[in-house]
Structures are given as structure tokens and as C-alpha cells.
Write a protein that binds this DNA or RNA. Structure first.
Lengths: 215, 215
DNA sequence: GTCTATATTGGGATAGAC
DNA sequence: GTCTATCCCAATATAGAC
């Protein structure tokens, strides 16, 4: 009675516009990248200097340039790592669910979990100004949104057929926007309880999906 | 048959957690501030140096420090100016509308207009990382969100009584989040057409409001 | 591959002339 | 109130020793 995993895997990591940077890095480079992410979370983009990264990682200043070429090279990999982490969680939650109501619930629950963790949004919003002004990074950013809308509409449709997601495309756009926007309100006030708002959204989505399904 | 303006003005600029910085500035300081905003829009926060502002405004480097005390002082006023501009437009759209359907429509139309102009979101998202890390700025940011939720729920309720907005508070949170999130998607892709998504949102809001009103 | 030392740039702050 | 000159510092980049 369970769906075949192959079918449910119609959307997986291979469709992601970004890839996991870690497997392509030497152990030293991985340590540097991890240190850079910690600094970005804690102190923001402006604190992301070779000096600070060297201290945090235990590596030498010059070693950072050796492994990543330049500041821009490091930032590019950093952006991939942050984006990839966020996407991976969503894929993991829905990729192997059965078609139908179960998948829709899994998607909404995964969204809720992500939304409630402000910590990841700090690094994300720190990177946005730089992503938007770098043509290459912005293109990856754009593709990531496309991917999010694809995944969301696919999961909302509850069908394994990607084309079935089309009626849900605008709803997916709204859901993605909602999550980013709620993250911003959480940044403004870490004590703000966004669960009631999220619950309302989940109800509105379910109502809408039922109406679509009913014709 | 029209409501009194005094009553419709239950929410106005006096309730804003930030004030218009311009009236308190000398003509020179105003020119400097305008130049700073242009640079922020065009080149981002990192390009916002005394050097660049002096060149853009035609004023002298030292004059900037004289008028704003320090870089942080300038940024603080800059944040107020950007936030105030966004808020003013929304107030203008709904403050003098009649209670009921007209006000709800005015609110939604005002939101649509703001959402479609990516240009203002660039400066906003450039400032976010700095706002979030400065306790004073973040507090004003938090209060601004509270104000947005108040205004939105008040306008959605269609009543002049502020308390009538309570059932719409979560919906207001979602609307605010939606707009910020759509702005982000527009930053990622200026050609992305978010009107269909916005139309869907307007419909979902109307449906919800009708259901609440019906009891 | 790794590190030291140094070059170069550009930021904000300060003091004081006008 | 406005501007000039200068100081200090921190950042990335470079060259070359090991």
C-alpha cells in the first residue's frame, strides 16, 4: 500500500540549484567554512574577516585565502552551505512520504519547524544584501525560490505527478513568502509567538486545498 | 453618511513608533540624508561611507559628522527615514476611509502597490542586519511590526473600534509577513510577476474576513 | 601546503583654522 | 557652521620563506 520511493522521489537533491559544498572541500577548508558560519550567526557579515575566521577555526589567515581564493570565493561557498542546509531539511521531510494528505501534513510540519528557529534566519538575512548585489549569487537565489515553489506545490497537490502541482503554484509562492516574512518578525522580536499565526496559515492552506480538490 | 474623520483617525502618525526625521534636520542635513538614501538604494550599506555621501550630496565629509555626530547617528536617522516612508503610505491610504468594505479594499490595494515596488525593499533588506544587531534599532523595528499588525487588523475589521481588530490579529501578522516575503522574492528576481500570488492572497483574506463576520 | 611579513587601501575620528 | 589636514586602525591582498 505504500508508494514506491522512486516515485515519491520525483523531487530530490538532484533538482536543487545548489549543491552541498562540503564533499568538495578538504578537511581544513571544511573547518574554515564551519567557523565562518558560526561567526556569521553570532556576529554578522561585517565580523566575517580573515582575522576572525582564523581565530575561530584555529587555522592561519593565509590558509583561508589559499583554500578559497578570496573573500568573495569564501562567501560564495558560504551562501551555498547556508542555502543547502535549509533546503535539505525540507526535502528530508517530504521526499519519502506517501502521496496525499500525509505529504501535505509533512510539508506543513516541516515549515513550522523551520519557522520557529530564528537562529537560521539571522545568517540568511545577513547574506541577503550581498546575494542580491552579486549577479551569480542572485541567480542561484532566484533558482532556489523556483525550487521552493516547485517542491511546495508538488507536496501540496499530494500527487506524484509534478504537473498536478500547477494549481498550487501561487499558494506555494505565498507559503514561501510567509515563512521568510515570519522569520523577519521573529528577528525583530525573538519572544514573539508566531505559532498562532502559523496555525491560521495551516488552516487557510488546508481550506484552499480542499476547495481546489473539490473542483 | 460618511464617518467623521476624527473617528477614522483612530490610527494615525502619532501612534507610529518612529517619527519623520526631516522636520528636525537643517537643510544641509536633509541633503546629506537624501544622498545617503540614494547610495543605500544603489550600492548597499557597505558603500555608505562618509566619502561616498560627501560626493553624492556635494557637502563636505566633516559636515556629515557635524550634523549627525557619528556614523551610527546617521544610520539611526536613516533607519527612521526608511521606515517612516513605508508606513506613511499605508496610513495615507486607510486613515480617512469609511468603516467597512471600503477600508478593507483600500488596505489591500495599498499593500499591493507597496509590494510591486521592489526598489524600496532593497534599502530595507540592506538595513535589516544592522537593525537586528543594534538593541535600540531593533526595539524600534519590533514596535514597527506591532504597529503594522495593529493598523492591519484595525483596517481588516472594518470597524472604528480598535478592539474589533482582535480576531484579525493573526491574519494581520500573516499579511505583514507575506508582503516582506514577496519583496524578497522580487529582489531575487525583479521580473517575477507576483500579482497572481497577491491576488490569491487578497481572495483568501476576503474569504476569511467574511467567515469571521458571519460568526 | 602552510605561514610570516609587508603592502595597500580605505574606513572613521580628531583638532584646529577660517 | 564649515572645511582641511592628519591620525589611527583594520581589512584584504601579495610575495616569498619554509
Amino acid at each position: 500500500m505504500a508508494e514506491e520511493h522512486g516515485a515519491a522521489g520525483a523531487i530530490d537533491t538532484r533538482d536543487l540549484p545548489i549543491r552541498d559544498p562540503y564533499p568538495h572541500l578538504s578537511p581544513t577548508a571544511q573547518r574554515i567554512l564551519e567557523a565562518a558560519i558560526r561567526i556569521l550567526d553570532r556576529e554578522g557579515f561585517n565580523a566575517l574577516t580573515f582575522e576572525a575566521i582564523a581565530a575561530e577555526s584555529g587555522e592561519n589567515r593565509a590558509s583561508i585565502r589559499y583554500h578559497f581564493g578570496s573573500k568573495a570565493g569564501l562567501v560564495s561557498v558560504l551562501v551555498d552551505a547556508v542555502m543547502y542546509d535549509g533546503s535539505l531539511e525540507l526535502i528530508g521531510a517530504v521526499a519519502h512520504t506517501e502521496a496525499g494528505e500525509q505529504r501535505r501534513r509533512a510539508l506543513i510540519e516541516a515549515h513550522r519547524e523551520v519557522a520557529l528557529r530564528v537562529h537560521e534566519y539571522t545568517a540568511f538575512y545577513d547574506l541577503v544584501p550581498h546575494i542580491v548585489r552579486d549577479p551569480e549569487l542572485r541567480e542561484r537565489f532566484r533558482q532556489l525560490f523556483v525550487w521552493y515553489r516547485d517542491l511546495d506545490s508538488w507536496a501540496l497537490s499530494g500527487s506524484d505527478d509534478p504537473a498536478a502541482g500547477n494549481p498550487y503554484r501561487q499558494l506555494a509562492t505565498l507559503t514561501t513568502a510567509m515563512l521568510d516574512g515570519l522569520g523577519l518578525q521573529l528577528l525583530a522580536d525573538p519572544d514573539f509567538d508566531l505559532r498562532p499565526a502559523f496555525d491560521l496559515w495551516a488552516r487557510m492552506v488546508c481550506d484552499y486545498v480542499e476547495r481546489i480538490a473539490a473542483g
